[in-house]
Design a protein around this nucleic acid. Structure first.
Lengths: 223, 223
DNA sequence: AAATTTACTGACTTATAGTTATTAAATTTA
DNA sequence: TAAATTTAATAACTATAAGTCAGTAAATTT
């Protein structure tokens, strides 16, 4: 049945074209201001067709966001593929996330809504599932790395790798959120250099996790 | 001019009544699902009247959120008024924020939108100003406390109090956000105890800030 | 060649934020 | 105190945008 397969391919292609159009509009205007009519026009399709491919505006938004998650997973994958010492690699992951933040700001911004429980309710369970799955891949990378550090004796035995991962991530993520506020509130009003705070936070947390032995060697490596 | 004053009072009272109604609806439904018609009905006023008092739905939302900020400021104020050692007080502030999270979840959830740059654009500059002002009060409390720790010699001299405050806050805040996800994702799927992670993160960061001298004494106090 | 399925359309429905012309009561002025 | 003015509030209206559905034309199958 070659026809069925071709049709399947064409359908998938159309799905991607719709995501292309949605990405363009969502990047420009954000979830709240973008309209399905605009996206339809950008996709050179009628609005009705969009709803044949995606259940709602929110689902379509997540389809675009998923691409962002994949980009991040790729970046993390590259960092891990380099054969650096474990502690250095953990530090590099933090820097890589910061790179992602600077280079793919539009994707980073899409993550905002995903954490809002209110938004969760407006999304199909299937799409939520997909997002959680892709998310977990990234988590697994970090958790496994920290476990490796424990096995090698450079991270303290009483550290829970999952807990450590979530702490590193929470701190990094929220500080970048603050950097993303377009006004210059933090710098001008509060006199805070958030980039410096981000690095300091990661350094503090990483240091708290290391074994005494590793601290000495790490500071020779990264002064 | 007693009449002018009475009218002023009545106007202020009406503003509060509108916030009461808005709070009820926003707590129930959240920003996106709540409607101005519902709020008007709850306030026993017409929708048009709401717009005589607040410029937009978003402004009204922030008016409710401001109450939450005031509640948090009060809670922090009470912690600070107790005459505990500085390091203990910093730790207590973290616990107090966690109490706020548990006891005033609805207010906590309102903070989500305030950090979204997209949302910022839909709000009047005056309201944004008010929120920033109230916000800064809370920040000042924490920053001054950390500075006191430095002056007393229990926190390292090279710590920037503002930076330390923003790090503590970012980590706490984001971990609570994760806890707030109504699904049991973190616990059931990832096997992470976020409450434990929250305490561990605060302990790590606080420990990284202390002087060697203080560490010994602090661990006698809080084992 | 007729019947059926598929992909798509665009006009329609519904919902809701925000506006405005109008009204009634309170207050001021003469 | 009666007319004029100001104030507070209304309710009907407009505009916009998400989502639906009956209809169509092309591709595919019988």
């Amino acid at each position: 049945m070659g026809i069925t397969e071709r049709k399947e391919r064409e359908k998938e292609h159309r799905r991607e074209e719709i995501i292309d159009a949605a990405q363009k509009i969502f990047f420009q205007k954000g979830l709240l201001v973008a309209t399905m009519d605009e996206i339809a026009e950008a996709a050179e399709l009628s609005k009705g067709t969009l709803y044949l491919y995606y259940k709602s505006k929110e689902d379509l938004y997540l389809a675009v966001m998923l691409r962002g998650t994949e980009v991040l997973a790729d970046i993390f994958g590259k960092v891990l593929s380099k054969d650096h010492p474990t502690l250095k690699t953990i530090a590099n992951l933090g820097e890589a996330y910061y790179e992602f933040f600077k280079e793919h700001r539009n994707y980073f911004r899409m993550f905002y809504f995903f954490e809002n429980p209110q938004f969760h309710k407006q999304v199909s369970p299937e799409m939520l599932q997909s997002c959680s799955g892709e998310n977990q891949k990234v988590w697994k990378l970090v958790i496994d790395l920290i476990q490796r550090g424990i096995d090698e004796g450079v991270i303290q035995r009483d550290i829970d790798p999952k807990q450590a991962a979530v702490i590193l991530w929470a701190s990094s993520n929220h500080l970048m959120r603050q950097m993303d506020r377009e006004d210059t509130y933090w710098h001008d009003v509060m006199g805070i250099d958030l980039e410096a705070a981000f690095r300091k936070a990661n350094a503090m947390i990483l240091e708290s996790m290391m074994t005494e032995d590793a601290k000495v060697r790490f500071h020779e490596l990264v002064p």
